[in-house]
């Protein structure tokens, strides 16, 4: 057929043949082989050495199911009022922890972002602090705060606050870096000071990301606040571990359900508030 002759006058590489096709296929297989070998090797090793197979999975799930049905259900609804205090405490912890995170993360974000920092070294330092905080799970931080402040909500609150810096510091810095430079230039050209630039040029563009991530972190805090008590950080987690230590499984189930309800209510509420407040 003559269709091609006129069109393909400018052809940089030779027409591919079946050999090329094979070569192409083999290259793809070879590339993926390494990855799949690593993944497959790691999974086989882990499954084999932990002795955890499909059977264990289904046994475990069915045992848990029968345990829940026989020992932990129905939840003791009459003890719900007893746990309202700890529920509120969890909320207080989440809120104060969030404020601590934001107060620390905003400067870290501003100083960490390349376009608003005062010096490259400062930016690097700020980002490193966030990086370290991110690599430390909140529960690990809690262990140290409990050692200093003793068992109770204060340790948990501080751990939540510090734990949030890892994420918020990073995402604030990233969000500020993505800001349109022209608008900052515009404000700067009016002879504004650094603080004025931040207020007039940076904040309006940063605000949406700030709200989104802060809200996200608040939701995480509520979940985190519920478990941080497991290592002595106060709140519902502390009630949960106390109930379990006394083998009061139906109380434990009540608390778990309350955690679930609290998480859901908070998520719905923050979303509704956000739509209203912005």
């Amino acid at each position: 057929m003559a269709v091609s002759s006129s069109r393909s006058a400018v052809r940089r590489s030779p027409a591919p043949t079946y050999a090329h096709y094979r070569q192409y296929k083999q290259q793809r297989v070879r590339r993926n082989l390494v990855v799949w070998a690593v993944v497959f090797g790691a999974v086989t090793w882990a499954v084999w050495s932990s002795g955890f197979g499909l059977l264990t999975l289904f046994n475990g799930l069915s045992e848990s199911y029968s345990f829940i049905v026989t020992d932990a259900l129905p939840p003791k609804l009459e003890s719900v009022p007893d746990y309202l205090g700890p529920t509120l405490e969890t909320l207080y912890m989440s809120v104060v922890g969030l404020v601590i995170s934001v107060v620390i993360s905003v400067p870290i974000g501003i100083l960490g972002a390349r376009n608003t920092t005062v010096h490259r070294v400062v930016s690097y330092l700020a980002k490193s602090i966030a990086g370290i905080a991110r690599a430390a799970p909140s529960l690990v931080i809690t262990v140290f705060f409990v050692a200093v402040f003793g068992v109770g909500p204060l340790a948990g609150t501080l751990a939540l606050g510090l734990g949030g810096v890892g994420i918020l510091g990073k995402v604030y810095a990233d969000a500020i870096e993505e800001i349109d430079a022209a608008q900052i230039e515009g404000v700067r050209s009016t002879g504004a000071s650094w603080l004025q630039i931040l207020g007039q040029g940076v904040w309006p563009q940063f605000k949406p990301a700030f709200m989104t991530w802060t809200q996200y972190r608040f939701e995480r805090n509520v979940r985190g606040g519920a478990v941080i008590g497991l290592v002595g950080g106060g709140g519902l987690g502390f009630s949960l571990i106390s109930a379990i230590n006394l083998y009061q499984f139906r109380d434990a189930m009540t608390i778990i359900l309350m955690i679930f309800v609290m998480v859901m209510v908070i998520e719905l509420a923050t979303r509704a508030l956000r739509r209203r407040a912005i």
Binding site: V3, R11, P16
Partner: peptide, 11 residues
């Protein structure tokens, strides 16, 4: 692919 002028885009 050669007929539609795309031989060099095959991969």
């Amino acid at each position: 692919l050669a007929q539609v002028g795309l031989a060099d885009q095959a991969f």
